[in-house]
Design a protein around this nucleic acid. Sequence first.
DNA 1: CGCATAATTGACGGTTTTCAAGCACTGTGG
DNA 2: CCACAGTGCTTGAAAACCGTCAATTATGCG
Lengths: 252, 252
Amino acid sequence: MDKLRIAGHRSVCADSACSDDRTEVECEDCGLDPICMVLDYAGEESGVPEGILVRRRPIERGETLFHKDDLFRTLYAVKSGTFKTLIPHRGRPDQVVGFHLPGELIGAEAMAGEHYPCTARALEASSVCELCLDRLPDAGRPMEALQRSIIELLGKEVAFNHELIGSLVHQSAEQRVAGFLSSLSDRLQRRGMPGTEFILTMSRSDIGNYLGLASETVSRIMTRFQKQGLIRIQRKRISLRAPARLVQVAEG
Amino acid sequence: MDKLRIAGHRSVCADSACSDDRTEVECEDCGLDPICMVLDYAGEESGVPEGILVRRRPIERGETLFHKDDLFRTLYAVKSGTFKTLIPHRGRPDQVVGFHLPGELIGAEAMAGEHYPCTARALEASSVCELCLDRLPDAGRPMEALQRSIIELLGKEVAFNHELIGSLVHQSAEQRVAGFLSSLSDRLQRRGMPGTEFILTMSRSDIGNYLGLASETVSRIMTRFQKQGLIRIQRKRISLRAPARLVQVAEG
DNA sequence: CGCATAATTGACGGTTTTCAAGCACTGTGG
DNA sequence: CCACAGTGCTTGAAAACCGTCAATTATGCG
């Protein structure tokens, strides 16, 4: 596990093609990185087939990465842009189950089953890295290391969801919105992007849908926060003026 | 994977000590079974240490299986009885994050990290099987098979939680309670226990806490359901009179 | 069997949703 | 360059829903 990794993959991302977009994550900050590392390592001695990793495929706004119930073949990492995952309902409006920021994975929930449990759609012009898991060798030591990182990943997802369940169910609308904004801020910052000033690429109704609130409620609460000096919003642009107090509100 | 498994483990549970308690799951219906199978298989060629699997340890009502932040050592399967998992909060009431029925696992969420993310407590006199994972060999092929079943397991947990999030956040109190009762019924039935007539071992406030409702609301809604002929309740004993209509209520 | 605990039921108030209208931004085409 | 339409955001008023408080009843566990 501590072996030297083959050069190449990560250096691709250090070139100009990557750095001219300031909202793009470095590979070091990407959630796919531990897996990429395993693959690099694997290539050294067991000959992982070429072409299992596609870097920087551009995705346009509104484009669908995969549909619910599609056969699971590929794990995605957001390189730039934003995505939402949703569960489509006939008749009723769709159910937003998550947002995916640069550096985060999409499709990890499918890793246990055969099919994607949700649909993934770009909220803006974006780009992704694709890891084609169906081309992976299905035995050997690198596989074990890969499985370890998958387990870790899923475990984090479970923990995050437990947290989320607790939050959403027991918190007031105000707390939910405050928590949502803090969470976005944290996640952006963790991947090396500005965490106090960013664009809400998702609509108010996406946010409301995700938090279990009416879009009007989201709107009202945000203007309330602004009047209290916690944030400043103009349309989709937001800046957190008092992130600490925001956290305080979220925690009651 | 399809090799013959060593006799012994499962036959232990077919004896009289297990069958005189009618609320106990058979090993075949237990969530730990795929893992037990792997271990049996492992024992055949790589010599898994003895004593990693403890069968039928009795747990008394109110007893704590493990506390949040305890070092993760053991994976539990409920053999009989019921457990709740909760996140303790100083000052505020604890947050119930799940109920565990016979045949279901406890502690699986910890498998990715080092510590249990929640506390597990028995709701009644119960018994568990314990799988001491810290005594497992940490390499070799059986490990890979074990990892596969862990991945599958975590994946199901993630899917279940996604479903749960969607439900809790978007459904009314009535829908939540209806869904909760149907879910209990399904889970009991899946493990071979009566699904239309059972005991609600958890209190109304546990249910309310879990669903994000006041215990009074849970109570009111249950009596409402009774008046509508959907269920029949006397304190903790419940029988579902119209399970299909209950599902209908839950789905809106 | 008895007492602490849990469940039920009623009244009231606050929060959030719903419905509805007006406003601001974006992109398009004249 | 501006007018326009489309979409999403904001804001208001009324009603539904659920939580809180409180009193009563039933229970179940030791």
